[in-house]
Amino acid sequence: MSSVLVMNGPNLNLLGTRQPEVYGRTTLAMIEADCRAHADSLGMELEFVQSNHEGVLIDAIHAARGVRDGIILNAGALTHTSVAIRDALSSVELPVVELHLSNIHARESFRHVSHIAPVALGQICGFGPQGYILALDALHGHLTKED
């Protein structure tokens, strides 16, 4: 059974009420429940972490090393600013799927740059909460592919 860390960064605790025209009305708890149900069908175990603090996220990434098989990361605005998170991801050498609810490439220009993308397997953005299911499928496919 694969074990995956699903991480959510700053302000994602406000999903469902924060800018619903951009992020929708689905709460983070609803996303987690949907992910758990889908992960069960894939035979995956999930751990969820959400923090508004960069250091907490970095500590969670470090703690995943040797314990988890991969990471799904919605770093929120830290995607565009945190070299430290990028370095942490590189250091643990786990496959990472970068995720965003909105299409960051169709938004403000500062959101077009991701420090996470160069160290990720891929990026999923613009599909709202369904993006988490897509990320689970992508990581599951990566972890179970035969060489």
Rank of each mutant, 00 (worst) to 15 (best):
A64G: 10
N13L: 01
A77D: 07
L5F: 07
S91V: 04
S2H: 14
I71C: 09
N52Q: 09
L15T: 03
I85V: 12
P95D: 10
Y132A: 01
Q50H: 15
H140E: 11
G24P: 00
L89Q: 04
N74Y: 04
G76A: 11
V96T: 12
H62W: 08
E45W: 00
F127S: 12
I72A: 12
R25P: 00
A117K: 14
G24E: 04
M7T: 02
N103H: 10
L5I: 03
N74H: 08
G9T: 06
L46T: 08
A29G: 11
A33I: 02
A63H: 14
E45F: 03
Q123E: 10
V4P: 01
G126E: 04
L73R: 09
A117N: 13
D59F: 03
A29D: 15
R25Y: 09
A135Y: 04
A84Y: 06
A135N: 08
S114W: 10
I116K: 11
S2W: 00
H53W: 08
A88I: 00
G16N: 09
L134W: 06
V22H: 12
S109K: 15
A138H: 06
G141W: 03
I71N: 11
T27H: 11
L134V: 04
V119S: 12
A120Y: 07
S82E: 01
L94I: 03
R25S: 14
N74T: 02
C35S: 13
G66R: 09
H115T: 09
